[in-house]
Design a protein around this nucleic acid. Structure first.
Lengths: 336, 336
DNA sequence: CTGTTAGCGCATTCAT
DNA sequence: ATGAATGCGCTAACAG
């Protein structure tokens, strides 16, 4: 019923190995032969059976995406990008949600590997910085690419200069006259926490503002932590006139708390975030933030991984550009 | 290096067929033999190679999720649920984003099937109602389960009584004194559009309100269509005092437009949506909406599909309960 | 540049 | 209740 490689070979009048060569883009096939094979395959609607390919080729033609991220938007964008890269390379994707905070997450990855034999993994934060996991992967000799890893000068994958981005954004807000700019940090396990905090401090310094440690409060990249952080900051005797939430969720928490208090944004308080999630455009006022091209980063990381697997082009760590999105939540410092 | 079935057989002193029987829970194995095999497998850390299993067994141990949905939150929740069901059944999941609006989407599914041979598919709206696709699936004899299909009395999967839910919610808002309640509909291709519109009309009728066709405007389940719809409704000579956005994105668009006009919610305008997305809690004021347990629906649909594949328990269409979430965007009708 | 010959690791007859 | 033989559809050496 379903066409097999030998049917295509027969139809094209060649051997099955030649068909295999065509489909795997191997060299040593005459253009004319290739066309014959492709035509036959099209007519028969031939699709290689991936199980047979995997079994014979000792490769799964599969990569896995590991994630432990509370932000569905982020994960979906990364998935889209990874899928785009996979499709091009005729690779499949398996997903693995990991509960990073639980014991046994390394073992969960081991099971995944034993069962599906992915040819490589794509890691998202904070798994990118999980020492035990990375160590085990190297022991097992499993390739991986990272997205936004803390150590962004090693390995392969995609990163963005979050530190510079936040510094630029902070300096921009300072240029609007703000001198007391608060920051609600990200979760301790993320490299992003470190980069964004450092960028915030860079931005202040560049603007000739001395950092006030009181204005930096703990957060964890969540909406709730944005509310809690905003409360602490706004309850101060000398509250900040601008607040940087370590990501958009956090910043939206700040917007929420400001609205709950009847504080107008940006007239009374400026707010900015990071990520450029869809929500940042859909709140009122819309949120000033840093655009992080997550889909593109997923695509690039998967692409680098697939390059490494195929052994073509030397794979590397690609730095993607950021972009400030100045919208309506930032404005001049209030007078008085 | 990696243990194979024959290694286990040798270690246990049995034939490979016996090992196969144990791993596939087939009958005709003495308890004593079973234990021996299991012990040997554990020692050798044996994991069946899924490619070989698929190839020999003509089953992929894989199901595919097809989606074409602009809402990342929704898709992620469904994915989580489906993954949960898969894990339990030792099944893998492949994803297939479909561009429903483009020609050739049926062929894209055919390619997926030819290549990965999934043992079944899970469909999300609006693919659940795509005639040509469904017809082709039946022709190819591919099983599928649906989530929120338009025809929810046939096939297997999960549904929710959206019509009753919206009727309840609409009646609740009417009970707050509102008499002019507007509705921004969903996209034409979705069954949800029909159910929710019908529920809205039911709710009005139940509250003794005559429906005004002018108060129903076209939308498409997007934030932008919420803004556009709100503009049309609020620009009317006798504007509604409450607006039902066909989903939360749409309702958030209404909130946005209201804020842009300086209209206070719920003092001047009540707004409600559908889905209970995270955003509905994170906007100000928080959105009254209907909770749809998407994760659970994904789990159930996958579960039913896996049941059908295994041939156990007769699979069916499961109706899951809804829940009204009354938050801060709905309130008494303004006086005067 | 192309074809031939062996398996990949397992499930599946059919014996016993 | 268990085992031996056959092949799933393809890739991987090696020949030509």
């Amino acid at each position: 019923m379903r066409a097999r490689i030998e049917d295509v070979a027969a139809a094209a009048g060649v051997s099955i190995k030649t068909v295999s060569r065509v489909f795997n883009r191997e060299p040593n096939v005459r253009e004319e032969t290739r066309l014959k094979v492709e035509e036959a395959a099209r007519q028969l609607k031939y699709r290689p059976n991936s199980s047979a390919r995997s079994l014979a080729g000792r490769r799964s033609y599969l990569i896995s995406l590991l994630y432990d991220n509370p932000s569905p938007n982020y994960v979906m964008e990364v998935i889209e990008g990874v899928l785009a890269a996979c499709e091009q390379a005729h690779y499949g994707l398996t997903l693995r949600p990991i509960d990073f905070s639980r014991r046994g997450h390394v073992e969960s990855v081991e099971t995944l590997i034993a069962q599906y034999r992915p040819d490589g993994l794509v890691l998202t934060p904070p798994l990118t910085d999980d020492g035990p996991l990375l160590r085990r992967l190297r022991e097992m000799d499993v390739r991986y690419a990272t997205i936004s890893a803390k150590r962004d000068n090693a390995g392969i994958g995609a990163t963005l200069d979050e530190r510079a981005a936040v510094a630029d954004m902070t300096a921009h807000v300072a240029s609007l006259g703000h001198r007391r700019i608060g920051h609600i940090t990200g979760h301790r396990s993320h490299g992003a926490r470190v980069w964004r905090l450092a960028g915030y401090l860079d931005g202040l310094r560049r603007s000739g503002i001395e950092a006030d440690p009181e204005l930096v409060v703990e957060g964890e990249f969540s909406f709730e932590s944005g509310i809690a952080g905003a409360r602490r900051l706004l309850d101060m005797d000398d509250p900040p006139t601008a607040i940087f939430g370590a990501n958009d969720d956090t910043a939206c928490g700040v917007l929420y708390e400001a609205a709950a208090r009847g504080l107008k944004v940006p007239e009374h308080l400026s707010v900015f975030g990071f990520d450029d999630t869809p929500m940042s455009r859909q709140v009122w006022p819309s949120l000033s933030t840093v655009r992080q091209p997550s889909r593109e980063m997923g695509r690039i990381a998967a692409q680098q991984l697939l390059n490494a697997i195929a052994g073509h082009d030397p794979a590397r760590m690609v730095r993607v550009p950021y972009q400030l999105q100045i919208r309506h939540s930032t404005g001049p410092v209030p007078q008085g």
